[in-house]
Amino acid sequence: TGIVNVSSSLNVRSSASTSSKVIGSLSGNTKVTIVGEEGAFYKIEYKGSHGYVAKEYI
């Protein structure tokens, strides 16, 4: 489990790349469930599926 550490919002992406499609966003202080790691990204549970967020903001 981690907490989103941004002042505005954090993009949730379809894969572990900054060039991948943005599938949603999370507000600061949102609790997320981390299910894996891939490079500079965490794989998280997101809306019944999975998404990826940059580690530096969790």
Results as ranks from 00 to 15, higher is better:
58 I>D: 02
47 K>W: 07
13 R>W: 15
38 E>R: 07
48 G>D: 09
50 H>M: 09
19 S>R: 11
48 G>C: 08
7 S>Q: 13
42 Y>P: 00
28 G>H: 14
42 Y>S: 01
15 S>L: 09
2 G>W: 06
15 S>Q: 13
37 E>W: 07
29 N>S: 10
31 K>A: 10
47 K>L: 13
18 T>S: 13
19 S>D: 14
44 I>E: 00
33 T>F: 11
17 S>Y: 07
28 G>I: 11
33 T>S: 08
46 Y>Q: 01
23 I>E: 02
51 G>H: 02
22 V>Q: 05
8 S>L: 10
33 T>D: 06
4 V>E: 03
55 K>Q: 05
10 L>E: 03
31 K>Y: 14
51 G>Y: 04
1 T>M: 14
19 S>W: 08
7 S>C: 14
8 S>V: 13
49 S>Y: 10
5 N>H: 10
20 S>H: 05
23 I>R: 03
46 Y>R: 00
43 K>I: 14
41 F>A: 02
19 S>I: 10
48 G>Y: 06
24 G>A: 04
29 N>W: 15
18 T>Y: 15
14 S>L: 13
34 I>A: 01
42 Y>W: 10
32 V>E: 00
32 V>G: 00
33 T>H: 11
5 N>G: 06
57 Y>A: 10
56 E>F: 09
54 A>S: 11
35 V>R: 05
22 V>Y: 06
23 I>L: 10
50 H>E: 07
26 L>V: 09
54 A>K: 10
55 K>Y: 02
20 S>D: 04
32 V>I: 09
42 Y>N: 01
12 V>G: 00
7 S>A: 13
15 S>M: 12
34 I>V: 06
44 I>K: 00
26 L>C: 04
55 K>S: 05
53 V>C: 04
17 S>Q: 08
2 G>E: 04
51 G>S: 02
57 Y>L: 08
33 T>I: 15
24 G>C: 04
53 V>A: 04
5 N>M: 12
48 G>L: 06
15 S>F: 09
9 S>C: 14
27 S>Y: 11
34 I>K: 01
12 V>M: 03
38 E>M: 08
8 S>Y: 12
31 K>E: 11
43 K>F: 05
36 G>W: 04
19 S>M: 14
4 V>A: 05
5 N>F: 06
31 K>S: 11
51 G>F: 03
46 Y>W: 12
10 L>R: 04
55 K>R: 08
3 I>K: 08
49 S>K: 12
58 I>Y: 03
16 A>V: 06
43 K>R: 11
21 K>F: 09
16 A>H: 05
21 K>R: 13
56 E>M: 13
26 L>T: 02
28 G>Y: 14
45 E>S: 08
56 E>S: 08
15 S>N: 09
